[in-house]
Design a protein around this nucleic acid. Structure first.
Lengths: 343, 343
DNA sequence: GATTCCTCCCAAAGCGCTTTGGATATCCGT
DNA sequence: ACGGATATCCAAAGCGCTTTGGGAGGAATC
């Protein structure tokens, strides 16, 4: 069934060369001819054989990822969601997506091996930290890459896709302040991750603008499991002066926080307000919480898909993609936020 | 630097044909010659070019997986762990591992497309259910596959790797009974998954053998998150006659259960005994629980690796792998189990 | 009108492997 | 010693694509 280049060329009465060039966007082919070729492709359903392309071009038509298998990062819900977006997009373009599990201490070796193997022609990076050494490494490896997130303290001259975490949490905190909250707590992701740092920064900025300070006793950093959300919230509630509002870095954390709040007999959106960052995890929708959650929303899966698109588009020299993108999270107000309680 | 077949053949004063045959285990090559070839491969570090092999053989040298993106299955910790084992092994053999995210309702289409695309030469299946229709489908697709787990009610004539869930939970329950426990609860995985069904069965058998019955009020099925473990345990503890022991289908569930128990002021291993199934998740070690957990242990990552090995080995016709494997989980006693409390 | 320059196309040579279809040499029984 | 197995090896033809190095024809140049 599947036609190949040769047959397609014969069918059109053209040479393989011309057809190939028409398909790959080379200039030395008549516009009309190109249209004929494209038409024939549509009719026959021709798809170039990837193995042959790989062999002829020496390119891999694959993108690689080093999958961290460290405790704590390892395979959490957020990772899976991001992965799904990426893989889906890769499959769509008939690109292979090569997963390389690696312990953090072997990461550099893994990167080098992967880049040298010729098995992938682009890489991407996630779980950015402050001053992340991997960026410099990848730059030196002369293999295209895109970073999910941004490092901090590094020069900003590398391709990335990030959401504006600072603004997101600035906006969220500001809303709470406008509602009269003065003591706001933060349940954040791991302290060394760049997004956590930025979210805290955004919150600090909003507080500072209103002459408020952040009580460090009301900040917790941890893995983003609901267990940790629960514990953090419990700790806050035992504080002499408990917060009247709390920001969570994930709906997963919020799940635990909500439980702690309920258990303390407090009413969300009333006694205490809560805003969570929503990665749009299909299994955990903020609108399905007993009290629907106010969130800053940005789809992790969409980010994965976008990174794949950019990487693949860049490799195929199709379209023009910005090198750096900063997505703005949406602040969506639901029932979990309300005016600060009057004491 | 990398040598290719031609250079290797020249170096040896042999034809490419002979070298290729020597490497691929064909009989028509002298034993001594083969040794020379193998030796040369070692010295030069020769690795066949996968793209060329793909083109010449028409095989993909890749294994595929349809990644479920349904709520509830989607990207949980256990999945990531299994994936890591699989990917690691695939990379080792220079096999690509092609992830295909798909919603359950599109699964059949996805399987067919994947099999037809020629992009993979084997598939594997996970999250088995009772009477799982995917098995018959894969059989009809004439593409090799291995199932992680086993269906129930299907004829048993397909390749699988499973752990003996029935025995694991039989053993665990028996131990508890021997310790004098009469009321044992079960916090299980989703009801429709085969492993959940088997674990319950194993438990039932042990009880029956000792003339005990299972109180259905002491059984909970849910996603394997600690949140659900917590809730289930809480419900049990509110029962008029609470259990003196509990079985958990995952250490993640146990995490929540332990919290509920502590919160109720009960002492694990003393007031209430707990045995969990341990998938050997690196982020959650049973020995690190405040009271180290007695577990039935079987590494999920090892299972992933083994499946990759079997799939790849089969495709390369290397070695002889059993078609069906049933791993026995180890019952490891730690501090969370003790004699039933005397009332 | 001859020369140069584009424009548009093609033939053929790879890419690095596998595999078909012989060759050549050795060995066997008779 | 001879015809036929048997054991080893090789040359060459693909696999399906990209890319080099032209080549024919018409337009532009002088």
């Amino acid at each position: 069934m599947a036609v190949n280049l040769k047959q397609l060329a014969e069918l059109l009465g053209l040479s393989q060369t011309t057809v190939s060039r028409a398909l790959n966007g080379y200039p030395e082919v008549n516009a009309e001819t190109r249209q004929r070729v494209l038409q024939a492709v549509r009719e026959t359903g021709y798809r170039p054989n990837r193995a042959a392309q790989r062999l002829a071009t020496g390119r891999a038509f694959s993108i690689g990822m080093v999958m961290p298998i460290a405790p704590g990062i390892d395979s959490d819900v957020h990772f899976g969601e991001f992965l799904a977006g990426l893989a889906e997009e890769a499959v769509k373009h008939d690109f292979h997506f090569v997963l390389n599990p690696s312990a953090p201490e072997d990461e550099e070796v893994t990167f080098r091996r992967l880049a040298a193997s010729g098995n992938v022609d682009a890489l991407f990076l996630a779980y950015m930290r402050a001053n992340d050494p991997r960026i410099a490494m990848l730059k030196s490896l002369s293999i295209p890459f895109v970073v999910h997130g941004r490092s901090i303290g590094e020069s900003r001259d590398y391709p990335f896709l990030d959401i504006d975490n600072t603004s997101a949490f600035y906006d969220a905190a500001r809303l709470l302040i406008q509602l009269g909250h003065q003591r706001i707590a933060l349940i954040n992701g791991p302290e060394y991750l760049a997004f956590s740092i930025r979210r805290k920064k955004g919150m600090l900025r909003a507080l500072a603008e209103h002459g408020l300070a952040l009580d460090e006793a009301l900040v917790e950093h941890s893995l983003m499991t609901d267990e940790h959300g629960y514990r953090s919230m419990q700790r806050f509630l035992q504080h002499a002066q408990p917060p009247t509002a709390v920001l969570c870095s994930s709906t997963v954390l919020a799940l635990g926080a909500v439980r702690a709040i309920n258990q303390a007999g407090l009413k969300i959106g009333d006694d205490i307000s809560l805003i969570a960052h929503d990665d749009v995890l299909p299994m955990l929708k903020p609108e399905n919480f007993s009290v629907p959650l106010t969130t800053t929303r940005s789809s992790l899966r969409a980010a994965g898909a976008r990174i794949a698109t950019r990487l693949i588009g860049g490799l195929l020299k199709r379209g023009d993609y910005p090198d750096q993108e900063l997505w703005r999270a949406e602040l969506i107000v639901r029932a979990s936020t309300g005016p600060a309680p009057q004491k």
